[in-house]
Design a binder for these strands. Structure first.
Lengths: 327, 327
DNA sequence: GCGGACTATGAAAACGTTTTCACAGCACCT
DNA sequence: AGGTGCTGTGAAAACGTTTTCATAGTCCGC
């Protein structure tokens, strides 16, 4: 049943070494190469990747660890990473932490045990802080989130600028009681918060900051509470797509229409954001670019291990829609 | 640098066999087990999974091959499959074919080479037709899509009933010029189409069927064309979430509101479907159940290889919303 | 007190490849 | 003619585990 390289070698009348070379890149005469290929077809041979990896000590595998695969931002980035891996002849292991530090640790351990070539990782803040390069035998590139400076290569959005851009836009549209609801688990949400805060103060406005687990349900609950309070904000900034969705739900449930009842502006130009109500104003992230750059950094580091740590900062693009129209 | 089981054995003053047994389930005295664990901690040993798999001939890995990870239906199913795999102590390899037969073949080959324990697969119609059990050394469970009867275990929606249910609902709401737009690549879309056709005829109505690549852009283009024709349908049935999204876009672009301009009903209760306009009527699929059942079938077959092929058929649930309100 | 059954352990084989090493054959240079 | 260097090939080692096999020790029933 299980046909191995020995069987192919026997069928082709050559040694296993020759079969290996014919299938790989070793020097083999044209005649033998054809014999081997015929034998492979005849026997239906499929190489055993575990054996190959064990012997050649090259996993040809990259790991991708994301926080939440339901978040379209991460699925889009995954596609880009997958394409790059595929083009480089590498396999991809995709893992999902659900923003859970324990699962992050589990999957990082798994990557070590798989002896992967490299890893692209979107860590929670807690994990990012204790990520030490010397603990890993492979290059680790952070995306979306970032750790302490100088640790690992990374590619992130210019979150301070993006947070500020949303404030500037809302102020320009005539809003002033602008609240900000940010995810609690990522450095990215923190930076967006800081950009928001700085811009508010620059405009002479008082920041109103709240924090929530970055998922739709908790966000909806928090926004519902907020909108029920006296002196509730005229406008809200939401730090990612899931939180934005929760906010839309809460506004809808409170009977507030956009932007009259409350204005909303968020992150991630997800496919549905232009379909709801008057259209949602968002900062679009260059998702494909993020994935591609991450793989670029990874391959560069594999080629030149000693080079200084690099951090690529990409700019978002404001897409103004009806949810923040002038009051 | 690379610490192996030999190093642990030396540090603990035992043989490699004992280390292996202490880490696995073999019989080892308590004293030695503790010595070994201490040595593991001291050396920072991480087992090499390639070596382990090669020797033990148990990959402890299941493969999941889906058509399009951007489709929330598949991401939801993935979560369920991942949870089940995780609970069974297995790793998951997730692959994305983009409805491309060539990539399907590539990934199936990869699964063979990885010597996976089993595979869960949502094949295109073309691939499903030529899928022969004897070509695979592992159990293969089909989800969402299905192949010729008796081939592989599978779990699918009752698509005929679901297609018919949408027709019944629309007729009940007073629509009669009801068109159906179905994906071109899956058996599932075909079944939904047949359910639609049968129900239409049962109501004495003429089916109007069109077919499109199951993605938002092609669907939008096709619906735009359709809605511009004379005698255009009053209502449309869309065979999955991406096609539904394209239809919403096209209706919006044509200046038609829902359900006055055109009524829409589709598949997959995606998170955004209740947010757009008057809410979209959909058939909700039991996504978690589908994933869980698929893994159940897989494990059953691993346990009892000889048992007859089973096909689990689950029912969808109609969620009526404003997009099909009575005219 | 002795044989038999069981337990814990170590030495060595085995998993299926790739890679190293040795060498035969041949062309080329002096 | 005799190195020298290159090319293609096979035998065997190597990758890091788990598993088989053998063995020494212990317990138990008679």
């Amino acid at each position: 049943m299980a046909v191995g390289i020995r069987d192919v070698a026997r069928a082709a009348g050559v040694s296993t070494a020759t079969v290996s070379r014919a299938l790989g890149k070793g020097p083999v005469s044209e005649a033998l190469r054809e014999q081997v290929e015929a034998a492979v077809r005849a026997t239906g041979y499929r190489p055993n990747l575990s054996a190959r990896r064990l012997r050649s000590q090259a996993a040809q595998t990259i790991g991708l660890i994301v926080a939440d695969i339901r978040n379209p931002f991460f699925t889009a980035v995954s596609r880009a990473v997958e394409d790059a891996a595929y083009q480089a002849g590498m396999r991809l292991i995709l893992c999902n932490t659900g923003e859970d530090a324990e699962r992050e640790a589990l999957y990082l351990r798994l990557m070590q045990e798989e002896r992967v070539t490299g890893v692209v990782f979107a860590p929670t803040r807690r994990t990012a802080e204790r990520l030490r390069p010397e603990d890993f035998a492979f290059p680790l590139v952070l995306i979306d989130r970032t750790g302490p400076p100088g640790g690992h290569d990374g590619v992130v959005l210019d979150n301070l600028a993006a947070g500020a851009a949303l404030v500037d836009h809302l102020v320009e549209q005539g809003f002033s009681r602008i609240g900000g609801l940010f995810g609690s688990t990522s450095s990215t949400a923190e930076e967006r918060r800081d950009g928001y805060g700085a811009a508010m103060r620059r405009h002479g406005l008082e920041p109103r900051i709240r924090t929530v687990l970055p998922d739709a349900e908790p966000a909806e609950a928090e926004v519902a509470r907020w909108l029920a309070e006296p002196g509730r904000p005229e406008a809200l900034i939401l730090s990612n797509g899931l939180i934005l969705m929760g906010a839309v739900r809460a506004a809808r449930a409170a009977g507030l229409d956009l932007p009259g009842g409350v204005a909303l502006a968020g992150f991630d130009n997800e496919p549905w954001t232009d379909l709801v109500a008057p259209g949602l104003t968002v900062i679009e992230q260059p998702v494909a670019e993020i994935g591609a750059q991450a793989m670029g950094l990874l391959f560069d580091r594999l080629k030149t291990p000693g080079q200084p740590v690099r951090k690529v900062v990409l700019s978002g693009r404001l897409i103004a829609r009806g949810s923040t129209a002038r009051r």
